[in-house]
Design a protein around this nucleic acid. Structure first.
Length: 288
DNA sequence: CCTAACTCCTGCATGC
DNA sequence: TGCATGCAGGAGTTAG
């Protein structure tokens, strides 16, 4: 569910409320939430107790809290994960999966996840291309909001792919942080069709869609993220309101804000793509 | 090597 | 009302 802006808002909340605090008792309420921590529940809880959480970091949709000693608690929210701060004693949320208490007795950190696609794990930090990343994040590309994001290199790599443009935007090894919502919004802003073969893009077009992705995600960040329901909230349980600013995503049949043509929904890899049929003309030879 | 379908879950809206 | 179906903001795994 959450894409870069939503994950960044959560990261900022963790930096403000959790960084510098020592972990106390940890409770794993659902084993699936730590399935990527191969050593199991006891190891997970034991490894965290007494450790101080340092900086809150992010790459794409992954976020992590550095621990002393080249390790980190890695979190991925999947489709429905939330990290929330709650006063001790707050009743369990319906889908509470992991509970982190702190030695100072202050607000607890709770991982809540309806669909259990997300999870937590403790990982080694490894150097990758000038960054220090949790091992499972080593293959994830930089995101367009990263100061070190290399537009020229990504443009070249994208044009070398034999796939459709939206598939490329969603490939987290090429460019990270973009999900189904912001891919559709970036394509609309750049007036490009989701099935456009990446190999036929000009450099200017490829750069434009990446710039549009950066732009729309910065705007969403400023609006507190996109939320259609209670499934996305920040660490304090508040929703964002960027959904009011979406041009095409979820706007099937509604007028395109630019030309008034009805927005169309197409099936796309068992999900949906939303686009304006007039602004985003279908390529002569669309990528299947 | 690269690309794409499949798969893991729960809950909700929709239609018969 | 009850039940089946499809769909939802993700990504690792596997098959080709």
């Amino acid at each position: 569910m959450p894409e870069l802006p939503e994950v960044e808002i959560v990261r900022a909340g963790l930096a403000e409320h959790v960084a510098g605090r020592a972990v106390g008792a940890v409770e794993v309420r659902h084993p699936r939430a730590i399935r990527r921590h191969l050593a199991g529940e006891r190891d997970f809880a034991g490894r965290l107790a007494g450790r101080v959480l340092r900086a809150a970091c992010r790459r794409g949709k992954y976020l992590w809290l550095e621990l002393d000693g080249d390790e980190a608690v890695l979190a991925h929210l999947g489709m429905s994960g939330q990290l929330r701060l709650q006063p001790p004693g707050t009743p369990d949320e319906a889908h509470l999966r992991v509970l982190l208490r702190f030695a100072d007795g202050g607000p607890e950190l709770r991982f809540v996840d309806q669909r259990t696609f997300g999870g937590l794990s403790v990982e080694d930090l490894v150097p990758v291309g000038g960054a220090l990343l949790p091992r499972p994040v080593a293959h994830i590309g930089r995101d367009p909001l990263d100061p070190a994001f290399d537009f020229d290199a990504v443009v070249a790599a994208m044009r070398g792919r034999r796939t459709g443009l939206k598939r490329a935007l969603l490939d987290q090894t090429l460019v990270s942080g973009i999900g189904n919502i912001y891919a559709d919004e970036a394509l609309w802003r750049a007036r490009l069709h989701w099935a456009r073969p990446t190999a036929t893009l000009t450099r200017v077009q490829a750069r434009a869609v990446l710039a549009a992705a950066a732009e729309v995600m910065i705007e969403a960040l400023a609006a507190g993220g996109t939320s259609f329901d209670a499934l996305y909230v920040n660490v304090n349980g508040r929703s964002g309101y960027f959904d009011r600013s979406l041009a095409v995503y979820g706007q099937d049949g509604l007028p395109c804000p630019r030309c008034g043509t009805a927005v169309r929904r197409d099936p796309f890899t068992n999900r949906s793509s939303y686009s304006c049929p007039r602004c985003q003309s279908r390529p002569r030879r669309p990528h299947p």
